[in-house]
């Protein structure tokens, strides 16, 4: 009798097991499913927050043409049509060599400066098999200021025109709406105007975005320059604006107290003061072109 019971019991156990598996076919695979790593994408809409680089990279084989524009300051009043009479421009292009390595070139009208950069994203935020809460990138830029020498009679060196910036960018997409980022930065100027100014300027950029709708985001950035490094008339840069995305373009419309759109300028040479209307209206327009199509694998 016991054996019958035992057999019946076994029978039920098997049935139950069969039942449990019958319930959801896909769950069969879950047990030995090699979990995949899912990388977080689109922490920011563009590879710039406003002036600062974001943790985003231009995708491999994609050329991103950027036109940046900063009008004069709002406190120019009606005579200057609130700054619209003046403009500072940067025209540039970014190219993705791989999905994690990008380069860029640009030319700014402000101090007739050429700039080039290389950015390598060495850490990608991910979840799943590999759980990584942040993305991080390293940025190195060089700017060449090409204004005529102020004192042509002096012994002028080409190296005096050079500015280098090294920046670590660490960011996290907290959720679908909010992304935050820190950018510790070193700006090196080969030549400075006075003895009081440091050649090396240390700064910390803090930036973030809030996605308002699928196609519009609010961005802000603030760059704190450690004290006693730059001339007292220079301010910390603060910018706030919107990213608006329309198909192939991203329009970034913003207000900033910085005129320059490159690191050595907006970090170490911002003169505008938010307190008395030294604010520039400006925009960045980005248009991407796929130069090399990715292989589908």
């Amino acid at each position: 009798m016991k054996k019958i019971l035992f057999t019946l019991l076994l029978f039920f156990v098997f049935c139950l097991q069969a039942w449990a598996q019958e319930d959801d076919l896909l769950s069969l695979l879950d047990d030995d499913d090699e979990e995949t790593t899912e990388y977080v994408t689109a922490s920011f809409k563009a590879n710039r927050v406003i002036n600062l680089h974001s943790v985003e990279n231009t995708a491999a084989g994609v050329l991103d043409i950027k036109i940046g524009h900063r009008f004069g300051t709002l406190n120019g009043g009606f005579y200057e049509l609130f700054g619209l009479d003046q403009a500072s421009i940067r025209i540039g292009g970014d190219y993705g060599i791989t999905n994690q390595l990008m380069i860029g070139l640009g030319r700014s009208s402000f101090e007739k400066t050429y700039d080039g950069f290389i950015k390598y994203k060495f850490l990608r935020q991910s979840k799943g098999k590999r759980n990584m809460p942040i993305s991080a990138a390293f940025l190195a830029t060089t700017a060449i200021q090409t204004l005529r020498w102020q004192n042509p009679d002096r012994d002028n060196l080409f190296s005096s025109r050079l500015y280098h910036t090294f920046q670590l960018i660490a960011g996290s997409k907290i959720n679908e709406q909010i992304s935050l980022q820190l950018s510790p930065t070193l700006v090196h100027r080969n030549l400075v105007a006075t003895n009081e100014e440091e050649n090396d300027v240390y700064a910390l950029g803090v930036s973030g975005r809030i996605k308002l709708t699928k196609r519009v985001a609010l961005n802000a950035e603030y760059i704190y320059v450690l004290p006693d490094q730059i001339a007292p008339e220079f301010q910390n840069s603060f910018s706030i604006g919107f990213d608006i995305e329309t198909g192939g373009h991203v329009f970034q419309l913003h207000f900033s107290n910085s005129t320059s759109m490159i690191e050595k300028g907006y970090i170490a040479e911002t003169v505008g003061d938010w307190g008395d209307g030294g604010i520039h209206f400006g925009f960045n327009v980005s248009r991407v072109f796929t130069i090399q199509k990715p292989k589908i694998k």
């Binding site: 076919l25 689109a42 699928k214 192939g248």
Partner: peptide, 26 residues
């Protein structure tokens, strides 16, 4: 005869990176 599929949306690959981003995001 029961059949089940599961497809990871992020695993769709496009020719244009921006298209892929818009597909996922928007």
């Amino acid at each position: 005869g029961r059949m089940e599929f599961a497809i990871l949306i992020k695993a769709f690959q496009f020719e244009k990176a921006l298209m892929q981003e818009h597909f996922n995001e928007n």
